[in-house]
């Protein structure tokens, strides 16, 4: 068992992706503020042990493809005070990414006004 991913990376640098918008219980490395947001793959980082499994004592294999995804700050935050070219980068495991052309629900609305 090498633990390498079972498939090749789905995305490449420059691809647009949407972050899966969900709050499953468990250990997740996807911050809430980025869920449902659209970004661009900045680079492929390699394959890493899945923290969502490793966090519970499992081996986290096969490894998960990890990407750096870049977002426009004005897209993430409603009242962003800054330059329109300001960006934010995060690392995302492939199973949290959705191709932008796939049917996806609108970003979740806040429950309170």
């Amino acid at each position: 068992m090498t633990g390498e991913p079972l498939t090749d990376p789905i995305f490449k640098t420059g691809d647009q992706v949407r972050i899966h918008d969900s709050n499953p219980p468990g250990h997740r490395r996807t911050p809430d503020y980025i869920k449902g947001k659209i970004g661009v793959i900045e680079r492929y980082c390699g394959a890493f042990v899945n923290p969502e499994e490793s966090a519970y004592g499992f081996d986290g294999l096969p490894k998960k493809h990890l990407y750096r995804v870049r977002f426009d700050q004005t897209h993430i935050w409603d009242k962003y005070d800054g330059n329109a070219s300001d960006t934010l980068d995060l690392e995302m495991y492939e199973h949290w990414l959705r191709p932008i052309n796939a049917a996806a629900p609108e970003p979740r609305k806040a429950i309170v006004q």
Binding site: T30, P31, R68, Q73, G82, N83, T87, L88, D89, E91
Partner: peptide, 15 residues
């Protein structure tokens, strides 16, 4: 300066 873009990196995984 306003014309300098800020790139924030949220170090949330393996980098």
């Amino acid at each position: 300066a306003d014309d300098v873009a800020v790139r924030v990196h949220d170090s949330n995984a393996d980098m």
